[in-house]
Computed example of a mutant assay.
Amino acid sequence: MNAPAPVTLQPDVSTRRPALAGLAALVLLTLVLGAWQCRRGLDKLDRAEAAERAQAVKIWRGGSLPVEGARFRPDGQWLPSLGFSVAPRPRQGRPGAEIVTPFRLRDGRLLLVNRGWLADGHPPAAVPTAAPMVEMAAWPRFITLGPTPPEGSRFQHVDAGAFASWAHTPKPAGYAYALESALAIDIPRPFLNAERHFAYMASWWGMTLAGAILWWRFRKGAR
């Protein structure tokens, strides 16, 4: 009795082509994500260099606002009547709030100045009479599920539009942190840690390389 002839399995082109297309799409996606992280890292390096160059600014009287991270002394006056707090803002396990006071520049625009953190129950810190030395900052980011109107002069988040509606003023031109403050101050510097983005870039492009090799081998096997 003759043995049955061996069965040769032919590659199923109809299933391999979609698989190749999907793998190619993943390779392209990781390539794009790596480029995006590279761009973010380079952007943070540029912003850090611009902030360092702007350290020479001493008195700012008008014109374009200094770049994020620049330190300067604006020319104008405090508006303590429009000051507000941002809460809850716990710090080291203690409840408290951040104290924000507007500063009117000579050209009439407003700069919201975060003067620092104050623990709940402590008396309000007096607003200084002299113009502050400040560090320019980006508007704080926040996530909310719905409208969060202020309660009296207590806000949940720093928001230019919400402040303008509450104070009946034009939207503030910018946001800054006071450097000479009697309150505790923690200044975020989002333009730092560029190395983290380059590490993400390397991870994504490593996956791009691995995916490209896998795609090539898979394609050769399909022939």
Results as ranks from 00 to 15, higher is better:
Gly152Lys: 09
Thr148Cys: 02
Gln156Gly: 14
Ala199Met: 13
Ala212Glu: 04
Val67Lys: 05
Tyr177Met: 10
Leu65Asp: 06
Gly152Pro: 10
Ala182Leu: 10
Leu20His: 11
Pro88Glu: 06
Gln10Val: 11
Leu145Asn: 15
Val13Gln: 12
Met207Cys: 13
Arg47Cys: 00
Pro88His: 03
Leu145Ser: 15
Ile59Tyr: 12
Pro124Gln: 11
Gly121Pro: 07
Arg16Gln: 12
Ala131Val: 08
Thr129Phe: 00
Trp60Ser: 06
Gly116Cys: 04
Pro149Gln: 01
Ala119Met: 07
Arg40Ser: 06
Pro4Met: 12
Ala125Phe: 06
Gln55Pro: 07
Arg39Met: 04
Leu209Thr: 11
Arg73Gly: 01
Ala24Asn: 05
Gly69Val: 09
Trp78Met: 09
Ala5Trp: 00
Leu209Cys: 10
His122Ile: 00
Val27Ala: 13
Gly63Trp: 02
Ala125Leu: 06
Arg109Gln: 14
Pro102Lys: 04
Gly69Cys: 08
Ala138Val: 07
Gly206Cys: 07
Arg16Phe: 04
Ser153Ile: 02
Leu23Trp: 08
Leu118Ala: 15
Val67Trp: 03
Pro132Ala: 10
Pro74Ile: 06
Gln10His: 05
Arg40Val: 04
Ala25Lys: 01
Gly108Trp: 05
Ala162Ile: 06
Val67Ala: 08
Phe84Pro: 02
Leu145Ile: 00
Leu111Val: 07
Pro190Leu: 11
His122Asp: 15
Ala176Glu: 06
Trp78Cys: 11
Pro4Ile: 08
Ala199Leu: 15
Ile185Ala: 12
Leu209Asp: 02
Leu183Trp: 07
Pro170Gln: 08
Arg17His: 02
Pro95Ser: 12
Leu110Ser: 13
Phe103Gly: 03
Pro170Thr: 03
Ala50Met: 11
Asn114Tyr: 09
Arg91Asn: 13
Val13Pro: 01
Trp117Val: 07
Leu110His: 06
Ala35Asp: 10
Trp78Phe: 10
Trp117Lys: 07
Ala5Thr: 12
Arg196Gly: 09
Ser14Arg: 15
Val86Ser: 08
Ser85Arg: 14
Glu49Phe: 01
Ala5Pro: 01
Arg73Val: 10
Arg61Ile: 05
Val158Glu: 01
Pro66Ser: 06
Ala173Gln: 09
Ala164Gln: 07
Pro132Ser: 08
Glu195Lys: 13
Arg91Asp: 12
Pro90Trp: 07
Ile187Gly: 10
Trp205Asp: 04
His168Met: 11
Ala162Glu: 15
Gly211Ser: 06
Gly152Glu: 04
Gln77Asn: 11
Gly41Thr: 10
Arg154Thr: 06
Val100Gln: 02
Leu145Met: 12
Arg189Phe: 00
Phe218Pro: 00
Thr144Asn: 09
Arg109Leu: 03
Lys171His: 05
Ala21Asn: 01
Pro11Met: 01
Gly93Pro: 05
Arg141Gly: 14
Ala126Leu: 12
